[in-house]
């Protein structure tokens, strides 16, 4: 591992903002802070995105709103010879419990209920935490942010499972599976949550810490 030296030798680690510089978040080129568009890759730059939190809350709200019909409407519609069964996400998990497949039920509940709700809470917590001094360290919040960003895409797995089931299980009159309208809302909820995580400017996490450390030093 290569250890890089601090850009200025005085005091602690210095932010690019305090040196009058801005870093392109797409290609990492460093520019004077008067530059608004990266000269190398053309990405828009700002020292701190002033609308970051606003967009995070808007996307998060959309994700939450879409998550409600995703749970109320059926995700899968199974037609067998004699009956038609419509299952919501939780209803599907309950029927797996009734059949005795606790493992599958647990997987469904964790992947489709626990993780989405945890993501909503985590992003909300991060957005609130950067507006005030937080008791959770910046390192832990950075880790939380990276976990949320990493896990976000994996929630699309539910949609892919519905797609595979409903294209594969088409056995004429015997049994046929069709996707329900909830799959659309669930996909939208996942996409909006991903956009909320992407809208979050993680540099804000470190600003608040730098400010509170500075305040402690002055005291």
């Amino acid at each position: 591992m290569v250890c890089m030296e601090r850009a200025e030798q005085t005091g602690g680690i210095i932010n690019a903002r305090d040196m009058g510089l801005v870093c392109c978040r797409r290609c990492a080129q460093v520019w004077p802070d008067t530059t608004h568009r990266c000269g190398r890759c053309g990405h828009r730059m700002s020292v701190r995105d002033p609308h970051s939190l606003q967009r995070v809350w808007a996307m998060l709200l959309m994700g939450l709103i879409c998550y409600i019909p995703a749970n109320l409407y059926p995700m899968l519609r199974t037609r067998t010879l004699f009956s038609v069964q419509q299952d919501t996400i939780v209803g599907g998990a309950i029927s797996f419990i009734e059949y005795g497949s606790y493992f599958v039920a647990a997987v469904i509940l964790i992947a489709s209920v626990v993780i989405p709700l945890a993501k909503f809470m985590a992003i909300g917590f991060l957005a609130i935490s950067v507006t005030r001094p937080s008791s959770v360290s910046a390192h832990q919040r950075q880790l939380l942010f990276e976990v949320v960003e990493y896990i976000g895409r994996w929630s699309m797995i539910d949609i892919f499972v519905v797609a595979i089931m409903s294209s594969l299980v088409q056995l004429n009159t015997l049994v046929a599976v069709q996707p329900g309208i909830a799959s659309l809302f669930f996909a939208l909820s996942v996409i909006f949550t991903m956009l909320a995580a992407q809208a979050f400017d993680s540099r804000l996490i470190w600003d608040v810490q730098a400010q509170s450390e500075g305040a402690q030093r002055h005291e």
Binding site: E8, N15, Q29, P32, S202
Partner: peptide, 25 residues
């Protein structure tokens, strides 16, 4: 002011905005 010059002697962390003197591994 029309053509800003990039600082190629520095590297800035895109996640936390810390500025470092560039050392190429």
């Amino acid at each position: 002011s029309e053509t800003p010059v990039p600082r190629t002697d520095l590297i800035v962390c895109p996640q936390c905005d810390a500025a470092w003197t560039l050392a190429r591994p």
